[in-house]
Amino acid sequence: MHRFANPGRFLRLATRIQPWLKGLTALGFALGLYLALWGSPPDYQQGETVRIMYIHVPAAWMALLAYLILGLASASALIWRHPLADIAAEAISPVGAAFTLLALITGSLWGKPMWGTYWVWDARLTSFLLLFFLYLGHMALLGAFDDRGRGRRSAAVLALVGLINLPIIKFSVDWWNTLHQPASIVRMNGPSIDPSMLWPLFTLAATFHLFLLAVLIERMRTLLLEARLRNQRLAAFDQLQPGSRA
């Protein structure tokens, strides 16, 4: 892993794999949307609303995965001062927030016809809403200080504290009574849904992973270039006014 910790090497590698990643993502969306909307049957209980699952479940998985990446990046930024870790944390949190919002919206659009309500303050939904606010808090803290390093450290601490929320989200459906259904895919006895519904789900889930990776790399690349631009401007400023910066 440390071979890729060098920002210059990361930039070169990212530039090389990015076109492939974007192409695969586009193909995945085409195939996944076809399977989800046309090439799979309605559910015998939930009818056509089951199609919301193909967006809702992968979006929720990405929301959790993005937070795991945020937590790991924040930890390595605080402990090892890893050069790319701060960049990865800053790059991932808007993406995580977007997937969390998508999971919340699609969940409430699924909840209305199936549960009779858009929203209920139970453990799963409330902890997921908290996840959204953790992302927003992380983004806000990053920009809250004039000293960029202080902002990054406070944001990293918030991200680490928020990690407690991940197991709460995962096990909330087992620990508390809820309208939300328990795990039906990642469970001990294997998935409990029909293969005809697993295909669109896994295709879109794989595509969401590719999308997350492509956007993460692109945002990290942008943040590295922005740092390079800031350094250039500081250097140019110093040339114009030698000794003006303490």
């Binding site: 056509e48 967006i55 998508l102 699609t106 659009l109």
Partner: peptide
């Protein structure tokens, strides 16, 4: 969408927009 168009399509619309 079997009468559920008001829920299924906005869910996919939200995915595209976001």
């Amino acid at each position: 969408m079997g009468g559920y168009a008001a829920y299924v399509w906005p869910a996919y619309g939200a995915a595209v927009v976001i």
